[in-house]
Nucleic acid binder design. Structure first.
Lengths: 219, 219
DNA sequence: GTCTATAACTAGATAGAC
DNA sequence: GTCTATCTAGTTATAGAC
């Protein structure tokens, strides 16, 4: 009866995604995962074999979701624009927003995504990292070419680095936003925590300016 | 004979700094550390008591070095300027450069610094995080007020977030730069790896533009 | 497919000789 | 101060009942 094998399987993936996003792959034991998922210890080994393979599946599934969403948003923008050129801010937002929230869950579960996605570059496990980095290729190419069209003066060689600055800013901004209430904040600065949309707006503003900065040495 | 108790102590700290910067606190065992340091297992417990206290010392020592350097650079800039206003790019560079390299070791050991410093916000260990976040206070206040002077239109509430975007960009840029040769790079983009100075210049350019972006809604 | 029990190993920490 | 030997607990992974 092949109904949908894998209710527990998905439960495990969801729990692991949550936990890994908070404490990283190394910081979480398989026992933590099965406890959170409410399943037994053997289930992980049955469904995934090893902890490492579970890790890969979690990361890949998460990144695939984010990147699918990014492409879809870009497609929608281009379709709506009907040949007219997009604004850089629109493109940046299409890149940023799916990493911070998905459709259903604006913050809670959605916010796992980019924490995971960015944390992957700090994951010590080489197997894990290899799989994850490959997930970036399609999206990178797509956004790369769009942005080069929208920021015509930008040398192609510069964009790679600026995109990575953007990704870092996105990751950090989100991390701080999520941790804001539990964080010791320096006295005399008293920053305000914007709502979720405010955070995205601020990031888009910052990154748009950074991406379109004029290069002092032009070839 | 109180010559300088703690040659091995420093050896352990150095080895731990290197390893933590690569794989995080959770990713490294005490056995990894003593092996790299060439000392015996008991030494960690003798000098630091627990792994956690060793972790705190490593992080605090590292951040203190970076932040001391930042303050010193800012002081030097202000002294050299003699009352004249600094450029934003100068201030950003004073913030960025010490995180990427210190005087003696431009890349290798210096590059541990910010990896560590940024990773700390992803450290699951609450004790560790608490100590580390406190280290930011002095530097945050100092740069905050200088930047507000240099970018007069910027509302104070915005700067906190932009500084965090900068820190994220810095962290990510450095991480990618360090990993560049071992990284799978998307075909068709073929990014160029700049030298170390080039990386700093690019980051300063990006962040300067981002920090001085005009706020659409001005109060 | 699910669970329990347990094996095989690695972790952090300690005791005590030198 | 340094090292070896060892303890205890927690880890991943597996074997085998249901």
């Amino acid at each position: 009866m092949p109904v949908r094998h894998g209710a527990t399987r998905d439960t495990i993936l969801d729990a692991a995604e949550q936990l890994f996003s908070e404490r990283g792959f190394e910081g979480i034991s398989t026992r933590d995962i099965v406890k959170a998922a409410g399943v037994n210890l053997g289930a992980i080994n049955y469904h995934f074999g090893t902890k490492e393979r579970l890790g890969v599946e979690v990361y890949v599934r998460c990144l695939a979701r984010v990147n699918r969403n990014r492409i879809a948003r870009l497609d929608a923008l281009e379709a709506a624009g009907g040949g007219r050129e997009l604004s850089l801010a629109q493109v940046v937002e299409a890149f940023v927003r799916p990493a911070m929230a998905d459709e259903k869950e604006p913050v809670s579960s959605g916010s796992n995504l980019m924490r995971l996605a960015c944390r992957c570059f700090q994951e010590p496990n080489p197997e894990l990292r290899k799989f994850i980095e490959e997930q970036f290729t399609e999206v990178a190419l797509r956004f790369h070419s769009v942005i080069l069209k929208v920021v015509p003066d930008l040398p192609a060689g510069e964009l790679f680095w600026r995109m990575n600055f953007l990704i870092g800013a996105l990751n950090r901004g989100q991390e701080i936003w999520l941790r804001f209430d539990r964080m010791p904040r320096p006295q005399g600065i008293d920053p305000v925590k914007p709502d979720f949309e405010g955070l995205i707006q601020r990031l888009v503003l910052f990154a748009t300016a950074g991406l379109s900065a004029k290069c002092p040495i032009v070839g």
